[in-house]
């Protein structure tokens, strides 16, 4: 019921009386009618506020019993915090191992570059027939040494590139952890929308999604997830071989 409707006919007749009294020049009566109108308005407002308060009270009580928020507790937020911290530490590790590999690979490239320059200079002198027999023997020994070094340096650079490749697995692992935090936030959002609906009059229970037989849970976050997990590839292999693998 709206305020206007309730004011409706009675207010209209009071207003008509008011116009008539003013036209007739009766100030005292007009004043009295204005007073009555104002009073009517105030009491209606109070009634309306009272009704809203009662509804809100009922809704909040119902909400507590409804336990809509029970799915999300303080624990979940602390979990989410831990998960986000885990993401920070994984990204930190990945960035550091990438930077370490680069810092070790760059000097190797510089060494390779330097020794190639050195050999090129000698080679050009050899082609220009500026090298005597003794100098050539030295150059030949130098070249042999460098060929061995290059092999090692290239293998080491490749290993560092491989380390950089493997460090990128953080994106998958953190992505899975972040998806779980997003799920929590979405859950919270839908509960808050539920609260607004309940306060608006139409209560609605949250439906919990039916889980499939065996659910994927993503990477285990240390200190948060307490599942019975294996602690590495070695234990996976032991478990599988105990199953006859």
């Amino acid at each position: 019921m709206s305020l206007e409707n309730v004011l409706g006919s009675e207010a209209l007749s009071l207003a008509k009386d008011l116009v008539r009294e003013i036209e007739q020049g009766d100030g005292e009566k007009a004043q009295e009618i204005i007073g009555r109108l104002a009073q009517k308005n105030d009491s209606l407002l109070l009634q309306e506020i009272g009704r809203l308060t009662r509804e809100l009270h009922t809704a909040l009580n119902g909400f507590n019993l409804d336990s809509q928020l029970s799915g999300i507790g303080e624990e979940d937020f602390s979990d989410a915090r831990e998960r986000l911290h885990y993401v920070i530490s994984l990204t930190d590790q990945a960035a550091n191992s990438t930077l370490n590999a680069i810092e070790e690979a760059v000097p190797l490239c510089d060494q390779l570059h330097g020794s190639v320059q050195e050999i090129r200079e000698s080679w050009e002198r050899f082609l220009g027939r500026e090298m005597n027999a003794e100098e050539f023997r030295v150059f030949s020994r130098q070249l042999k040494g460098y060929l061995g070094e290059w092999d090692e340096q290239i293998a080491a650079i490749k290993q560092h590139l491989n380390d950089i490749l493997m460090a990128q697995d953080f994106q998958d692992l953190t992505g899975q952890v972040l998806h779980r935090v997003i799920e929590l936030v979405e859950n919270l959002e839908s509960n808050l929308v539920g609260l607004i609906r309940v306060a608006g009059g139409g209560g609605r229970k949250n439906e919990k999604k039916e889980g499939s037989d065996i659910e994927a849970t993503g990477p285990k976050v240390p200190g948060v997830d307490k599942w019975d997990t294996v602690s590495g590839q070695g234990e996976v292999d032991d478990l599988l071989s105990s199953l006859g693998f």
């Binding site: 692992l173 993503g218 285990k220 019975d228 997990t229 599988l240």
Partner: peptide
């Protein structure tokens, strides 16, 4: 996979 629960490996 990052799934490392024993029951999952057995599954």
């Amino acid at each position: 996979t990052a799934e490392q629960k024993r029951e999952q490996i057995i599954e």
